[in-house]
């Protein structure tokens, strides 16, 4: 009996995992649909129960019989940070708040191309994160409304609804809750796009988020005593940028993503000029058994490169937020 059950679960699991499109069901599959209805029902029941994981956890370790790990074929997952985390991290450089540098909300309805709607959704999400973290309650709801409208124009449904709007409204006085709700909103949107096989859209939105987050940070760097330290923190985003670049490159067959990649190339070229001091990375262990990842790359601050990077990010941001019909 458990074998039959396992077979059914594996079968349905395969169907779901490979995201077979229901519209494309073959005649052959339809003949088997009754079996699948039962299987899907069983799976639904199982997933609602939460499953029993204890069996696997009680299994004793026995590595000798395990299959060796394939070293050749690997899947890669890019867990990109949320705009809230990015802005929060950048806010540690002690930036002030300047609402004048935000992308004006009245431009939102003028974005007509698919690419500009998606990228600017990302821009507004980053702005929303910035106003929330800087506790500007005046703009929080205004920017949320813009995000909701642009999400609908991008055919993203289910994460920017009235219930969320009301939750944000109710939590305006509580900044921690607001940030937490906003993060949840962003995660949900990413998941919706990922599950709908719309990673190209996800890549465009995240590109907007990344450019706007860096732009907000760069525009807030002052010539104060923390100047060098702040530049270093911004240039350290190179590593995050490289991961994102790798991620977005996966979707370069999409014409909109390809155009966006061309823009990011300008920034990448400048960031590649950043001088890094590399030392061997190792994990050490102290007398208390505490481990530390030592070494790695240290960004050497260079004013000229930062200036070039700042000019480029302003230019790129200007390009993506401008109203264009192309």
């Amino acid at each position: 009996m458990p074998d039959i059950f396992n077979t059914i679960v594996i079968f349905v699991n395969n169907l779901i995992t490979y995201k077979i499109n229901c519209i494309m069901l073959t005649k052959n599959l339809l003949h088997k649909s009754l079996v699948m209805i039962v299987a899907a029902g069983v799976l639904l029941f199982v997933s609602c129960q939460g499953g029993n994981k204890s069996g696997s956890q009680q299994t004793a370790a026995d590595s000798s019989n395990l299959k060796d790990i394939s070293q050749n074929v690997k899947d890669v997952v890019y867990p990109l940070p949320t705009p809230f985390e990015m802005t929060k991290m950048l806010s540690t450089i002690g930036v002030g708040y300047n609402s004048a540098i935000l992308n004006p909300v009245d431009k939102a309805e003028k974005y007509f191309t698919e690419r500009s709607k998606a990228v600017n959704l990302g821009v507004y999400i980053a702005d929303f994160a910035y106003v929330n973290l800087c506790q500007d309650k005046t703009y929080a709801l205004t920017y949320f409304k813009v995000i909701r409208d642009l999400a609908l124009k991008n055919n993203i449904y289910g994460c920017f609804n009235d219930a969320l709007f009301n939750r944000i409204q109710d939590n305006l006085a509580n900044n921690d809750s607001l940030v937490s709700i906003s993060q949840e909103m962003y995660y949900n949107m990413s998941d919706i796009l990922e599950n709908a096989n719309r990673q190209n859209m996800n890549a465009l939105i995240t590109s907007g988020v990344l450019i706007e987050s860096i732009y907000l940070a760069v525009m807030n760097v002052n010539n104060d005593s923390e100047h060098q330290k702040n530049i270093q923190k911004i240039l350290e985003q190179k590593q995050l940028f490289d991961n994102f670049y790798e991620f977005i490159s996966l979707y370069k067959k999409d014409k909109d993503v390809k155009l966006e990649l061309n823009r990011l190339d300008t920034l990448k070229k400048t960031l590649n000029k950043v001088v890094v001091k590399s030392t061997n990375k190792i994990i050490t262990k102290d007398k208390n058994n505490h481990r530390t990842v030592k070494g790695g790359q240290e960004i050497i601050v260079n004013e000229t490169i930062f200036k070039e990077f700042k000019e480029n990010i302003i230019k790129v941001r200007q390009e993506i937020t401008s109203i264009s019909t192309k």
């Binding site: 070293q71 074929v73 899947d75 997952v77 867990p79 990109l80 940070p81 590593q239």
Partner: peptide
Amino acid sequence: NQAKSAYVEIGKPTIFKVVL
């Protein structure tokens, strides 16, 4: 923020590229 869940294939290595 880079904590993540994903479906992976048993026996096949999956790489999560993170920046710490």
